[in-house]
Design a binder for these strands. Sequence first.
DNA 1: AATTGTACCTGTCAGC
DNA 2: TGCTGACAGGTACAAT
Length: 274
Amino acid sequence: MPELPEVETVRRSLAPHLMGRKIEEVKVIMPKIIKYPESQRFVELLTGEVIQELKRRGKYLLFSLSSNYIWVTHLRMTGQYIYTKPQVPRDKHTHLIFILDNGYELRYVDIRKFGMMYLLRPEEFSVAKGLYTLGPEPLDKDFTLAQLKERLAGKKRKLKPLLLDQTFVAGIGNIYADEILFDAGLHPEREAMTLSPEEIERLFKSIQKILQLGIENRGTSIRNYVDGQGNMGGFQKLLKVYGKAGSSCPVCGQPIVRKAVGGRGTYFCANCQQ
DNA sequence: AATTGTACCTGTCAGC
DNA sequence: TGCTGACAGGTACAAT
């Protein structure tokens, strides 16, 4: 489900409620969500910890704790964190519950159970391989046009799979990849090394613009996504190509097409995107 | 080394 | 009404 703008929205919606909160109890209903350490150890270590800060890196949420441990979560397709009062009925896909010291609890809900959690010391970071190998953060100052140019050079790969590769750039998923490529006027099957300097600049600007717009609109809710308070996002109203096969391109009026590219459903305008 | 395919799960929707 | 298959905001790991 959640890509960079959704994870950032979850972070922002939870941070004010969780900062300084002590975790009084951890209830594990579905141990397989916990990847490391073993679930009993995870519970022992997390119980009594105080949440200091809530950070994001790519699509990962990072809770820094009062000890030097970091609680790492990836929501994958359908993971949600819900901050709520205990008396509110639980969704049947609630897999972990974190009881807080202020009468609230944080629930981890995940229909497809693809999500994962780790509790790591800084020197153990490589245990979460995907986090360890993450590429540059696209909205950070150190993500530059020159850097993108360099990373694209000599790459024969198609743009769509490249944007989805988290070691290339962190945080872009299937929705935003399609919206970025439409905004940049670039075909999802273009080989990366064939881009002109002017096209690379368009891609660079569209990556930042579309992700920023996604955050400003509190993410995209098509199926399951909600933030930490259970609120839907608004960016689904602004999508131009994703999920719009058969409707007309907002720029030229030609029909939007759907095609599998690198195994993922891909939407684009074959006229505007070359 | 770099791609591509497959597995992990549950739910929904279209077509018969 | 079922049933069946395709598809879904993702990535780890195996196989080429």
